[in-house]
Design a protein around this nucleic acid. Sequence first.
DNA 1: CAAGTGACAATAA
DNA 2: TTTATTGCCACTT
Length: 107
Amino acid sequence: MGSDGFFERVYDTVQQIPCGMVATYGQIARLVGEPRKARYVGFALHSNPRPGIIPCHRVVFADGSTCTGFAFGGPEVQRALLLDEGVIFRDNTHVDLTRCRWPAGIE
DNA sequence: CAAGTGACAATAA
DNA sequence: TTTATTGCCACTT
């Protein structure tokens, strides 16, 4: 859409993640058309210039694992938020991308 | 104003 | 199979 910035596309895509679903940095990078910029997708959320409109907790690693640090205010907090939205967890730190991967049908 | 840094993922060896 | 390196934009200081 009107946004010509890479970050803007990332924010717009992350905001489109439906409740109960999660997306990976790499998938978002592909959705914006730049599979090699997955690194900056994470940085875009880290910078978080639009707090409140960017559900960073719905974004996880390609492995389905959440960040190892306190990026979301606490990995356990992120897990609680996702569980509250209906996301299925395989482990305390890994999300069941098999069921909650978004968008559905990317293959 | 310029340089450095940063929540990852994919490919090569 | 696993480990290491590369890629690359915007934001921070």
